[in-house]
Amino acid sequence: YLGKSPGFLTPKRPVLKISASKIKDSAADWHNFTLKWENWNESGFTVANKIVNIKLSRQTESDKKLEMEYDGVNLNLKPKQSDYNKELEGCCNELISTLENMAKLELKMQKLTSTIKGICDLEAYHHGKMGSEVPLFHTWVTTYFYEVSSKLSEMFKKELQLKQTIVQEIAHTDDRDLMMVYLSSWLYQPYIEENYKLLLESMLLETGHRPL
């Protein structure tokens, strides 16, 4: 977990001190938000996996029942429908609350991006276009922080939309393959590009959270 910035920044111009420390805090926030996201993603996957297993085991049960009826043997198997439903419902609720947490996190990411946008605008206002091209830390111009931040936000936004659909639908299909697609989509997060950690790390490096 990265803490917020203490005062050992030495920005190139004292006027920029506030902007720099705000950006540094934002970088730390990004780091912490994505860690939380990954944790939610993992626990969410466990629950989603459980849901699929419950559905599949119910399928096999009813298959068995069908076979028995086909054989003309009536064992009067009554699978405990209410137990299934309870368990399934419990898991679905758990998954929904995980999704809610991820949605909150995603909202924070969006806010973070607009904060950085605000800093960029302020820099441009105070120093003009040329002024904001002077790096606050090492090499990044201020607008580049915004670029990276909005790129990250976009990824997580799209991923959240996908997850919302998965949560709505995962318990309502009997198609094994589709369940599998829901599960792998949840786990492998197709819209979060692999380079996101690299982007994040370079931001932490630039802002001095990581030693150069």
């Binding site: 639908e169 198609d175 094994r176 393959d177 589709l178 697609v181 599960l183």
Partner: peptide
């Protein structure tokens, strides 16, 4: 998982 990806016609699903 890849096989399932190939099997499902995503256009006909909620996705």
């Amino acid at each position: 998982q890849l096989q399932s990806c190939n099997t499902v016609a995503l256009k006909k699903t909620p996705l």
